[in-house]
Design a protein around this nucleic acid. Structure first.
Length: 211
DNA sequence: CTGACGATTCACT
DNA sequence: GTGAATCGTCAGC
C-alpha cells in the first residue's frame, strides 16, 4: 500500500491521548534537500494542554516558545531540552487548544546511512532512533523546524497500511515528568509492545496493561 | 540583567 | 547507579 499522508482532520481531533495512540505504527518522514529519512513510530506521549501539569502549556501559559502549541493542528513544535537535545512534537486540536504529541522512538525504515552520518554512529543499533533526542538527531530535526506544517512535504506522518493490534499497544506513565505531581501518573505514554526501539530499559511494561 | 533548570543521553564507577 | 554536558527559556529583580 502506498504512503498516505495523514491529513488535517487527523491532527484536528479533540482527544490528544487518542491521537498519540493512533500514531503508533504510522511513519514519520523528513525530506531535507532531497534526502529522505523515515521510521515507524513505536513510542509517543500525549500532552493534554492547559489542564496538564506536565505540559509546557499548563495553566494556559503562553510564551514565545510555546506559542506554536496554541496554533492550529498539524504543526511541528520542536524545542531544545537540557541545552543539547531537540525534541519533536506534533501540535493537535484546534487553535487556542495547546495539545501536543511527543514522538519518543522510531523503528528506522529509509535513509539509515544518513541517520548514521547525522548521529555519528558507525552501525545501526537500537539507540539510533530510541528516545526523543535521538529521533530528532537521526531525522535531522532542529528547533528551527518549529512551525513546520506536517501537511507539507518537509516533515510529515504517513500511513502505509501497517496494522497494529490494539492489544500490542501498551499505555504507561510518561517519562521524565516527575515535576508534574499526580499528572505524572497519567497513562499518556504509548509504546508498541516488545519493539526494541522503545526507549528506556525495555523491560516489564505489562504492569500497566490495565490502565 | 541574572540565575535556575529542563518532556535527555552517555560515559563512567 | 551517578553525574556531567550545555544553552535557550523564563521568572524575578
Amino acid at each position: 500500500m502506498a504512503l498516505k499522508k495523514l491529513d488535517y482532520e487527523f491532527y484536528n481531533q479533540a482527544n490528544v491521548v487518542q491521537i498519540a495512540k493512533s500514531l503508533i505504527g504510522k511513519i514519520l518522514v523528513t525530506k531535507f534537500d532531497g534526502i529522505e529519512t523515515s521510521g515507524r513510530i513505536v513510542e509517543t506521549e500525549a500532552y493534554n494542554g492547559a489542564i496538564d501539569r506536565a505540559s509546557h502549556a499548563w495553566n494556559s501559559r503562553r510564551t514565545a516558545r510555546t506559542e506554536i502549541m496554541f496554533g492550529d493542528a498539524g504543526m511541528a513544535y520542536v524545542y531544545l531540552c537540557y541545552g543539547i537535545h531537540h525534541l519533536f512534537n506534533i501540535v493537535t486540536n484546534a487553535k487556542d487548544t495547546p495539545h501536543a504529541v511527543l514522538i519518543r522512538a522510531l523503528e528506522p525504515i529509509n535513509g539509515i546511512d544518513t541517520m548514521l552520518k547525522r548521529t555519528g554512529k558507525k552501525k545501526p543499533d537500537r539507540t539510533l532512533t530510541s528516545g526523543p533526542g535521538n529521533v530528532s538527531k537521526a531525522l535531522g530535526i532542529f528547533t528551527k523546524h518549529t512551525g513546520a506544517n506536517l501537511l507539507d512535504d518537509m516533515i510529515f506522518v504517513a500511513d502505509d497500511g501497517f496494522k497494529v493490534n490494539n492489544n500490542n499497544i501498551v499505555a504507561t506513565p510518561r517519562i521524565g515528568v516527575d515535576y508534574a505531581g499526580e499528572d505524572a501518573l497519567l497513562p499518556y505514554r504509548f509504546v508498541l509492545k516488545g519493539n526494541i526501539y522503545v526507549s528506556g530499559k525495555n523491560t516489564n511494561l505489562t504492569g500497566f496493561k490495565n490502565l
